[in-house]
C-alpha cells in the first residue's frame, strides 16, 4: 500500500527526468552543426500556403531553411522583443503593416535594386526595406443566391445606401486588412469622407466578424449577403466546395478595390545576407509566382505570370493610386474607428 501510494509522484518525477533526457538528446540531435549555413525565417504566412513552396526552394537550391510560423503581428512583436538576439534572419509578413512596424524600429536592411526592380514601385517599400511577393485585392464578396450581380454598385460609397441596411453587410473592423482599407480611404478621399462612409455603413447595421475567413463562411451560409474582404479567402472555400455560393465583385477606382501585398524583409540580425537575397530571388522566380497564383489564389507581382481561379487580372482592376508605405501608420485610422464607435 505504501509503495502504491507513492507511485504517482514517482511517475511524475520519473516522467520529468525521462522526458527532459529525451529533450536534451533531441536538442543535441536537432542542433547538430550542419555543413551549409542556415536561413531562419519568421513567417506570418500560413504553413499550409507557403510550406510546400519553401520545401521546393529548399530542395531546389540546397539551402538550409528553417521557418517559424505564427501570426504576422505576434511575430513582429516577437522580433522586436528579441532585439539584437533575434534568431530570425528574415520576416515574411502577411501585410505591409507588419513590415512597416519593423522598418520604423530600424530593424530592416535595404534590399538590392536588382531584386526590387522585379516588382512595380507601388508594391514595395520606397526605402527599399521590404518587397511585395504577392498582391491581395480588396473585393466585395456576395452570396450569389441572395444578391444579383446587377444590384452591386460600382462604388464602395454606395453601400452606405439604406437598401444595404438591416444587417446585409459583413465587415471585420478589428482586422488588419480592413484597417488598411480604411487608411487608404482616408488618404484617397480625406478624413471627412472616410468618417462619413464609416458612419453610413454603421447606420446600415453591418455584422462585425473577427476576420475575412469568418465573413466568407457567413456569406456561404447566407447569414449576410455582402462582405468586405480580400480576394483569396473565397478561392480557398471554392477549392473545397466548387458550388460554394459566393462570388467576387470589384468596385472601380476607389479604396474598395485597392491592392495590398504580402511581403518580405531582411532583418538586421541576418547572418548571411547573400542567402537571404537568394531566397527573395527564389520567391520572385516565375515558378514560385505561378505556385502562388495556383495554390494561394493571390496576384503574382512579376510580369508574365497571371492570376488564376477565374479572377480579374491585375491590369483590369481599376485600382486607386496609392503608396502602400503610407498605410503603415494606422494610429489615425484606429482613432477614427474608436471615435465612430466601431472598434
Amino acid at each position: 500500500m505504501k509503495m502504491k501510494r507513492r507511485t504517482f509522484l514517482k511517475y511524475a518525477a520519473g516522467a520529468a527526468v525521462g522526458l527532459s533526457a529525451i529533450g536534451i538528446i533531441r536538442k543535441l540531435f536537432l542542433d547538430a552543426p550542419g555543413g551549409a549555413p542556415t536561413l531562419t525565417i519568421y513567417s506570418g504566412r500560413n504553413e499550409n500556403l507557403v510550406g510546400p513552396l519553401i520545401e521546393q526552394i529548399r530542395s531546389g537550391t540546397g539551402m538550409d531553411i528553417r521557418v517559424r510560423y505564427g501570426e504576422t503581428a505576434g511575430l513582429a512583436a516577437t522580433i522586436l522583443e528579441e532585439g539584437a538576439n533575434s534568431p530570425a534572419h528574415m520576416f515574411f509578413a502577411q501585410d505591409a503593416g507588419g513590415l512597416g512596424a519593423l522598418s520604423k524600429e530600424g530593424r530592416l536592411l535595404t534590399i538590392p535594386d536588382t531584386l526590387l526592380s522585379r516588382v512595380e514601385p507601388r508594391f514595395r517599400s520606397p526605402k527599399g526595406e521590404w518587397i511585395g511577393i504577392t498582391g491581395r485585392a480588396r473585393t466585395v464578396d456576395y452570396n450569389t443566391s441572395l444578391v444579383r450581380p446587377g444590384e452591386l454598385p460600382d462604388s464602395i460609397w454606395e453601400f452606405t445606401d439604406q437598401k444595404w441596411g438591416g444587417g446585409r453587410i459583413g465587415w471585420a473592423p478589428t482586422n488588419g486588412s480592413f484597417q488598411a482599407f480604411v487608411t487608404a480611404f482616408r488618404i484617397l478621399e480625406g478624413n471627412g469622407k472616410a468618417r462619413e462612409w464609416l458612419e453610413g455603413i454603421k447606420a446600415n447595421k453591418p455584422q462585425a466578424y473577427p476576420n475575412n475567413t469568418t465573413i466568407v463562411d457567413a456569406l456561404g451560409r447566407g447569414e449576410i449577403q455582402v462582405g468586405f474582404v480580400n480576394n483569396y479567402y473565397l478561392m480557398r472555400f471554392k477549392s473545397e466546395n466548387p458550388d460554394f455560393p459566393v462570388a467576387h465583385h470589384y468596385t472601380r477606382g476607389d479604396a474598395g478595390s485597392m491592392i495590398n501585398v504580402a511581403g518580405i524583409g531582411v532583418l538586421d540580425t541576418v547572418e548571411n545576407r547573400g542567402l537571404a537575397e537568394a531566397f527573395i530571388e527564389a520567391l520572385l522566380s516565375p515558378e514560385s509566382q505561378q505556385y502562388f497564383a495556383r495554390e494561394t489564389f493571390e496576384y503574382p507581382l512579376i510580369s508574365g505570370v497571371e492570376v488564376e481561379g477565374d479572377q480579374k487580372p491585375l491590369a483590369e482592376i481599376d485600382t486607386p493610386d496609392i503608396d502602400l508605405s503610407n498605410l503603415e501608420d494606422l494610429e489615425d485610422t484606429l482613432d477614427m474607428l474608436r471615435d465612430a464607435g466601431i472598434l
Binding site: N48, L49, R68, Y69, G74, V216, Y233, R236, F237, E240
Partner: peptide, 28 residues
C-alpha cells in the same frame, strides 16, 4: 500563443496545426 513563439523551430503540435488549418479554412 506561447507554443507558436517559444517552441523549437519546426516543432509542431496538434494545437498549432489546428490553428493554421482553421486560419486557412481547412476545416476537415
Amino acid at each position: 500563443p506561447a507554443t507558436l513563439i517559444l517552441a523549437p523551430i519546426g516543432f509542431r503540435t496538434l494545437a498549432t496545426r489546428i490553428w493554421s488549418a482553421t486560419d486557412d479554412a481547412l476545416f476537415a
